[in-house]
Amino acid sequence: MSTFADNIRFLRVKRGLSQHAFANDILIISRDRYSKYESGRSEAPYEVLIKISKYFNISIDLLLTVDIRKYPLEDILKLPDNRIVLPVVVDQLGNNSIEIVPQKASMGYLSGYSDPEYIESLQRITLPFLTNGKYRAFPAQGDSMPPFKDGSYIIGKYVENIDDLKPNKSYVFVTLNDGISYKRLKTKKKKSITVVSDNSFYEPYDIPLSEIIEIWQYASGIFPQDFDSINFENYDLQEVFSELRNTITELENKVLAIKNQTM
């Protein structure tokens, strides 16, 4: 039995339709022909797939690859292009279940974000104060967004529409080229967005909209045990990096001046 066969039988029964009614009235084909699709004895042609997809408002990709019986249709969040379902899973107390993307395998998220089995394999936590949305935890890397550093996690709330982005808010951007990055939105343009690090050592840069896979707005953070918030507050990291950048610029200018004198 195929995933597609299981899905169309599940959806048909959920709508309260008989095979005969669904085949004759909706798909305009014979019941015998349809029954072969539902039993897995035959594959549906493209024109039939389109009709089924439009009728149930579920993409062909999902119909063919995802066992939608695992996800209550009224409780799932679909991306705008309907390419994957993001089940909002809750525990017995009604708290949202938050998937944690592992530090060592963060790059694997680029190939696994659209695979429900990969998402289901991730460890989960629940935080009672995070409700009304879909949340996921991503590993922090580098020093571009203090106070987050290696070993920290940024919990993001899924953003459905690019128009919902707000300047000066922080987001986790999942992109084709850069993978997972945590930055602050500076401006929105017609075909790109400009993001900036809280660490002034790093320059702002543009991300083409065509490269963006997912966006998650900052909701909370998880810090390692050795995180010292008191020392961090007394340590002006931005000022240090700013001074370092000025020093590098001065050295570059001196080197350039020496080269010009020798030419």
Rank of each mutant, 00 (worst) to 15 (best):
L11N: 14
V13E: 15
V13F: 11
K14T: 15
R15E: 15
G16V: 12
S18K: 10
H20N: 15
F22A: 00
N24G: 04
I29E: 00
D32L: 00
Y34M: 00
K36Q: 13
Y37M: 01
E38Q: 04
S39N: 13
G40H: 03
R41H: 07
E43Y: 07
P45G: 10
Y46C: 11
Y46R: 09
V48K: 00
L49K: 10
I50E: 05
K51F: 00
I52P: 05
S53T: 06
K54H: 11
K54E: 14
Y55M: 06
N57C: 07
N57L: 04
I58A: 02
S59T: 04
D61R: 12
L62H: 04
L62D: 11
L62R: 05
L63C: 05
T65G: 01
R69H: 08
Y71F: 14
Y71W: 10
L79Q: 12
P80L: 03
P80I: 08
D81Q: 14
N82W: 07
N82E: 13
R83K: 11
R83T: 12
V85C: 08
P87N: 05
P87F: 06
P87H: 06
V89E: 15
V90G: 01
V90E: 12
Q92N: 14
L93R: 08
G94R: 09
N95W: 11
S97Y: 02
S97G: 00
I98A: 05
E99T: 14
I100P: 08
P102V: 05
S106D: 13
M107Q: 04
M107D: 12
G108C: 09
G108Y: 07
L110N: 09
L110P: 08
G112Q: 07
Y113W: 13
S114E: 06
D115H: 04
Y118H: 11
Y118Q: 09
Y118S: 09
L122N: 04
R124W: 06
R124I: 09
R124E: 15
T126R: 04
T126E: 02
L127Y: 01
T131M: 13
T131A: 13
K134W: 05
K134Y: 15
R136M: 15
R136F: 01
R136C: 10
F138T: 03
F138S: 02
